[in-house]
């Protein structure tokens, strides 16, 4: 009786997990290809480098947004807030499952926010590290 209930639940869970995993995999593969092209010594993305990027205060960007944490809070699990006061869904993939599934959105926000915070586009390595960190959360 219990297996009868658990089985469909597990299927649904797996299905949704894979539905989100596929586009994320594709994104990371894409960033990896670019990273390898930029640096032949590239061996893979690192969640801890991603976390460092998330927490570092930069001076090259706009003074209003010196770090990712300025809007996203210090915890990827928490709801952030735009400077205009709108809530931002938590960055962690575990809390906001539909994050990092739309390549267009990911490209848009990396382009905008890297310029706002770092004052430049992020490298493929940085993007891959950042994504790896957020997916691990």
């Amino acid at each position: 009786m219990r297996t009868l209930l658990i089985l469909p639940a597990a299927i649904v869970l797996l299905a949704t997990a894979s539905a989100e995993a596929a586009p994320r995999r594709a994104l990371l593969d894409d960033f990896a290809t670019q990273a390898k092209a930029a640096d032949p010594g590239f061996t893979g993305f690192s969640a801890s480098r991603g976390e460092t990027l998330f927490r570092t205060r930069f001076t090259g960007g706009k003074p209003e947004t010196p770090a990712c944490t300025a809007c996203h809070t210090a915890s990827p699990l928490k709801t952030g807030e735009t400077r205009a006061g709108k809530p931002i869904e938590p960055m962690a993939a575990s809390v906001t499952p539909d994050r990092y599934t739309d390549p267009k959105k990911v490209a848009k926000w990396f382009r905008r926010n890297c310029k706002s915070v770092l004052g430049r586009e992020c490298t493929a390595l940085e993007k891959g590290d950042f994504l790896t960190f957020m997916i691990s959360q």
Binding site: K62, P63, E64, R83, R112, N113, K115, S116
Partner: peptide, 10 residues
């Protein structure tokens, strides 16, 4: 690109 202190480019 500079929308009230942020990059909001489309």
């Amino acid at each position: 690109e500079n929308h009230f202190g942020e990059d909001a480019s489309l």
